[in-house]
Amino acid sequence: MQQKRLQDKVIIISGGTKGVGRAFAEAAAMEGAKVVIGGRDVNAGMDIVKNICMLGTDGAFVYTNLLETGDCGKPFALAYEKFGRVDGFFNYAGVTPLSPLDTCDEDTFDSVMDINFKAAFFCCQHAVHYMRQSGGGSIVLTGSAHAWGGQKDRAAYACSKGALLTLMEHMAHQYAAEQIRCNYLVLGWTPTDGEISLRNSLGESEAELRKRAAAVLPMGRMCESNDYMEALIYLMSDASSMMTGSILRITSGEYI
């Protein structure tokens, strides 16, 4: 029987109760990983843990409010206490409100930077600490094509993703000798719950969103959560053990 690609690895996911984070929690479990999820939706978190256990492995959920810096270490401490190591961290948590430079208010700017960059920074601090004790590990930061300038109505979001890109390059250079890797996975335009809710608030239905996106994306459709699973499994697996400091784009051909 073929070895599962993430067999017995301990992987932490921030924002793992929704969208791509949730999909990866279950995909990683199917590949044999033990998964620890940090998030605010307790019911969704416990439901995912139940699914993970049904897949024949183990998992845990811990309530994590990333607006509180002290909460950033909770998933890592739980993973190390329960499973004795930390092998991977997928930083998925993020927000994407409208935030054009000429009208963005301070509260919106702070909320974007606090979740998308500050929380990621301190989560990575904990990831490095525990991965050192585990002999290394893989960190994947959720990137965006907005990091290279972005659209006009996403100024704060674009800045946060640009900061994450710099953080990825910093970690890749500084921790390679400790076998701690970091890569930047650029996600495309995806109809996540958050994206659909945002468009609905602006008067656009999911069907209209998909049709509009299909007309402008070079490959003719939006990316779905499952489109990212093989890349994430690869980046967390030993198959990518010599890959760090890399940018991997899965964007339906979009490049802003």
Rank of each mutant, 00 (worst) to 15 (best):
H126K: 13
N183W: 08
I196H: 04
A214R: 05
P97T: 13
Y255N: 10
L6D: 01
G203V: 12
A172R: 02
L235D: 03
D114I: 06
K161V: 04
A77Q: 14
V35F: 02
Y184T: 06
L232S: 01
A23L: 07
T17E: 03
L164P: 00
G253F: 08
F61W: 09
R5W: 02
G220C: 12
G88N: 02
N183R: 06
A155D: 03
A120C: 15
S201T: 10
I233D: 02
M171A: 04
A213I: 07
A77Y: 09
Q3P: 05
T251C: 11
G73H: 10
A231F: 07
M168E: 09
A207E: 15
Y184M: 11
F121A: 12
E206A: 15
P218F: 08
G188D: 03
V35M: 03
N226K: 13
M168S: 06
I180W: 01
A213G: 03
T251D: 04
A177D: 14
K82D: 01
R221Q: 14
T244M: 02
R199M: 15
F61S: 06
F76E: 00
S134C: 10
A33G: 07
G70M: 10
A158K: 02
L141A: 03
E68Q: 14
P100S: 09
D47S: 13
L167K: 13
L164G: 01
I48S: 01
A79T: 07
R181Q: 07
Q151V: 13
A33K: 06
M242A: 10
D227P: 03
D47V: 06
G94E: 00
H170S: 13
A44H: 07
L248R: 04
K152P: 06
V128L: 09
S144N: 09
F121T: 07
I48G: 03
Q151H: 12
N43V: 13
N200C: 11
F90H: 08
K161P: 00
G253R: 07
H173A: 14
W189N: 04
F61K: 05
